[in-house]
């Protein structure tokens, strides 16, 4: 994937996770939001781990 797409994708996932976990009124929606939010941290941790 081209360089600029990764940060943009992670930013979109973060914002989507924030919106979903804030606005959805049930535990499932909040969990999906948390999962989306956790993705940038996961990507970062994996890259640091495998450096």
């Amino acid at each position: 994937m081209r360089l600029w797409r990764w940060p943009l994708l992670l930013a979109v996932l973060t914002v989507a996770g924030l919106c979903l976990s804030l606005c959805v009124e049930n535990a499932f929606g909040a969990s999906v939001g948390c999962l989306l939010l956790a993705t940038p941290i996961g990507v970062m941790a994996r890259r640091l781990w495998t450096r």
Binding site: W6, P7, L10, A11, V12, T14, V15, L18, L37, P40, I41, V43, M44, R47, L48
Partner: peptide, 16 residues
């Protein structure tokens, strides 16, 4: 490189 990687990953959260 670490600064750039971590910064790019958490930039959106830091902005919010």
């Amino acid at each position: 490189d670490t600064h750039n990687l971590v910064g790019a990953c958490v930039a959106a959260w830091m902005v919010v």
